[in-house]
Design a protein around this nucleic acid. Sequence first.
DNA 1: TTATTCAGGATAATCGTTTGCGCAAAATTA
DNA 2: TAATTTTGCGCAAACGATTATCCTGAATAA
Lengths: 313, 313
Amino acid sequence: MKETLSSISKRLGISTATISRVLSGKAKEYRISDDTAALVTAEAARCEYVPSPAAQSLRTNKTRTIGLLMPKVSNPYFADISSAIISKINSEGYTAIVADTMEDVKTQENCITTLLSHKVDGIIAAPCGSDSKKFEYINDHIVPVVLVDRYFDDAKISYVTSNNYKGAFDATSILLRNGHRDIVCIQGDTKSLPNQKRANGYIDALTEAGFGDKVAIVGDAFSIQNGYLETKLLLSSAHRPTAIFALSYTILLGVIKAIKEAGLSIPEDFSVISFDDNISLDYMTPPISRVAQATDEMGQLAAKMLLNRLDNK
Amino acid sequence: MKETLSSISKRLGISTATISRVLSGKAKEYRISDDTAALVTAEAARCEYVPSPAAQSLRTNKTRTIGLLMPKVSNPYFADISSAIISKINSEGYTAIVADTMEDVKTQENCITTLLSHKVDGIIAAPCGSDSKKFEYINDHIVPVVLVDRYFDDAKISYVTSNNYKGAFDATSILLRNGHRDIVCIQGDTKSLPNQKRANGYIDALTEAGFGDKVAIVGDAFSIQNGYLETKLLLSSAHRPTAIFALSYTILLGVIKAIKEAGLSIPEDFSVISFDDNISLDYMTPPISRVAQATDEMGQLAAKMLLNRLDNK
DNA sequence: TTATTCAGGATAATCGTTTGCGCAAAATTA
DNA sequence: TAATTTTGCGCAAACGATTATCCTGAATAA
C-alpha cells in the first residue's frame, strides 16, 4: 500500500542508501552505475513512490515549506498578494502554510510560533504592529524573512513594497493640476510605514507646489469607519475642501458613503482620489481614480527573493 | 539551543516516554504521579519546549495540517471563505496548507498530489471541473474531504454551500413583485452545480408565478466579460428586458459596464439584482441588491465538519 | 607479482516522537 | 509471612529518509 525506500529496497535487492541517492539525483556524485540508477528510477515510477516529507524533514531539517503571514486574507489587497505568492512558490515545488493574524499582534505571535514549529524554510510576512525585533531575530538566526507591503525602516530585513511616496506624490500632483487647492488627506494607521510614506508624498507634493500651508491630514485607521467619520467632519466644517485623497480603498468607501449621505456628488461637489486598486472602482459613478499597487508583481517578487535566498543556502 | 524530549530527559533524569506522556496529556492514563507530571510540565514551560511536528507526524502519521484547495484565492468570495477556514482551524491547533488551482483542472491535480504528499489530515476544497471521482476516492480511501461552495451531486462527499436555489428563487420573486415581467438571467459556468441551482431557482420562481414562458437564460461564464457581452446583446435586441439577474458579482460588473456605456442608468432604465455579496455594492449608485452568501459561516462550518470527522476517527 | 586505486554500493547511525511491553517497588490481600 | 495486585515509570522498537563511513572486488600501476 504505502511505498517506502525499504519496500523498494527489498523488492530490488538494493540498499535504501543507493535508492535514496538515485532518487535525489545524486547518482553520479556517488558513482551509482547507470544500470542500477535506471532500475531504481523505473521501479520508483512504477510503484508511484512518493517520499515522506515528515521523514525527510526530520532528517534534513528542511521542509520545502514557506510560511505566509498575512494580516487579513479576506482583504482583497492581501488576497491578491497571497495568491501571487502561493502560485509562485508552488511552481517551484514549495508549499505555503498560511496564517491569518487578523491584524492582531498577539495572534501574530502565535502564528509565528506555529510557523516556526512547522519548520518552515522561510517566511513572507506583511507584519502588523511596529515591533521589528522578532522578525529581525528570526531573519538573523532562524530562517530568512521577506516582508511585503509593510516593513520596518530600522530593521535589516528585505522587503517588497510599492513606491508609496511617489504614488501619493503623483496623486496629489494630479489634483493640483486640476486646480484643486484645498485637498485633505485622510490617512490610515499612523504607525504603518506605507501610510507614513504616502502622507509624506502628499505633503511634499503640496509643499513643492507652493501650498505647504494647505497641508491637511486627518484620520488614523485603514477602515471604512474612519473614512466615513472624517468626511462627515469635513463636510460640516466651515471651510470645505474641494478634494479628498483617501490613503486606502477602505477609507475611500467611507468617504463615498459620507458624501452620498450628504446628498453631494462626485465629481461635481468633490474630487476624490484613492490608494489601492480594486476592480469595483471602475464601476462606480463616476469611476474613481486611484493609485494602483501591482499586487501580482509584488507577490511574485517577494516569493522570488525568498526562494533565491533559500537556494544560495 | 533546540529543546527535545531527550534534552529534557537528561536534565530531569526522567525517560522520554514519561515526558512525552505527560506533555500529551496522558499522565493519568499511564498513571504518572502528580509530582513527576508537575515537574515535567514546569521544565517544559521553562525551556519553551516545542515538539517537532516532523517527528510527531513520522510516528503518528498525523500532521495536524489540513489542505485548502481553492480555485482562486484572489477572488474576494473565496478569499473570505479561506480566511474563515484558516482562522477556525488555527484556533483548533491545525495548520492550513493552501493551494491555488487557478481554476485549472490540471493544476488542481498537481495541487492535490502536493497536499497528499504532505500528508494533510484532511482537505477542504472548492473543486473546479466536474470530475468527482478523484475527490471521492480520496475521501473514501485517504483522508476526509469537505467541499465548500461547489460540490458534486453524484458523489458521497459532505459539502457546505449556500442555498443557491432559494437565493435565486427569492431574488427573482422580488423582481416579480416589483412588477417586472421581462427578467433575463445571465448565468455563469453551466457545469457548475451552484450555477445550475441558481438557474433552477430563477426558472421555478418565474414558472410558479405563471410566467414560465418568460424564462430567458443567457451566458456561460462567471466573468465580467460574459456579463458585459450578454448585456450588450440584450440592449441591442428588439425586445429589451426590464430587469437583469446576474448570477455572480463578476457578471454583475460586466452588466453595469454595458449599461453605463449605453448611457442608460440603474434603476431608471433597468433593474439589476445579483448573487454574491461584496462591500463595494453598497457604494455603487444606486446600491445594488444582491443575494448575499454567508462566506464566514460557510467557512466556519466547513472547518467544523472536517475537524469533527478528524476527531471521531 | 604486489601494491594502489577506484568503481559500486552496503551498513548503520541519526533525526525526535510515540507506544507496546516489561519490571521493580510499594501496597494490598490472604 | 507469602502471594498478589497496583503504582509508577523505563526500555527499546518503530516511523522513513539521509549520509558518513566502511567494505569488496576489479582495474591499474609499480
